[in-house]
Amino acid sequence: MATVTFENVTKRFDDTVAVDELTLEISDGEFLVLVGPSGCGKSTALRMLAGLEETTSGRILIGDRVVNNLAPGARDVAMVFQSYALYPHMTVYDNLAFGLRNVRTPKDEINRRVSKAAEVLDMTELIKRKPKQLSGGQRQRVALGRAIVRQPKAFLMDEPLSNLDAALRVNTRAEILKLQRDLKVTTVYVTHDQVEAMTMGDRIAVMKQGVLQQAGTPEQLYTKPTNVFVARFIGSPAMNLVPAGFVKGAGTGGQLAGFRPEHVVLGGGNGDAAYFQATVEVVEYLGDEQLVHLAAGDEKLLAKLPVEDRVPTGVEQRFSIPRDKLHLFDAETELAVRA
């Protein structure tokens, strides 16, 4: 186990800057999620850490060691690929043992580690099968097993859940978390799914167009987004953003007001609340709550309300937002003015 540090790391592909001056420190044993839309540079950052891409400039450290010029195998990290990349012609056992054999681990030790990993991941009975004889979830576990047996300083995971169906994804998410907590291995996890990021990460680093936007705990990102991009990216459904003047008592001109659908309240709210008038367009009934689509002039807004609230469609109503749930951003720089 070790810390992982990116120091002003940049990666250029010809004229395209994939990662721009990334600086990020991941503590020993921490679970850090790199999240962002596709093409934001998160996978490239992970691949640079793994040694699969060269850095254009900057330093990457694993522990105290600068690893920029180390071969992937010498960095002592294990990676779980999106495609799992299990060797199709090898059995599960051989897939797990391959890396250990390459560093001439004694046979008994290989046996011990593979058996242990198989036991931890509940796949002892699969050990003699080949990948094509496994389900998607089982393959995923083998890919995790391949990472575990190496006992690396860090786990690198590149969207490992994206090939699983929704139900399995939720289960596996929990399994990975539990495993990481048990093994206490520093983990860098890449995903484009903000729900995955929120539920798994000790900390989340949000990237956009190669630039790190904000790094912090899920709560920090949710409650104190540093800019419009993070505010919109974190949270589902996404935060409403309107010119500040639209919400009475929110802010001044040249600012954007942001509020999350789950913080919208039907009616005037308390005396301190900001409010706006809007017409109910569509109501989506979700069982425990309802998602209300609102329109006010050109603005389209979303509110998540308790099912008890009466919101007939086509009727203009007043909605309010508690002041402490209101976010203000500079309309030009898109940076938070008061979070």
Binding site: A50, L52, A78, A85, L86, Y87, F98, G99, R146, R150
Partner: peptide, 21 residues
Amino acid sequence: PKDFEEAAKLDNAGFLKTYWK
């Protein structure tokens, strides 16, 4: 897919071993 070779690289396999195995 290049993933297989990259997995092999991380598994400490050199060029010839990756080719052969």
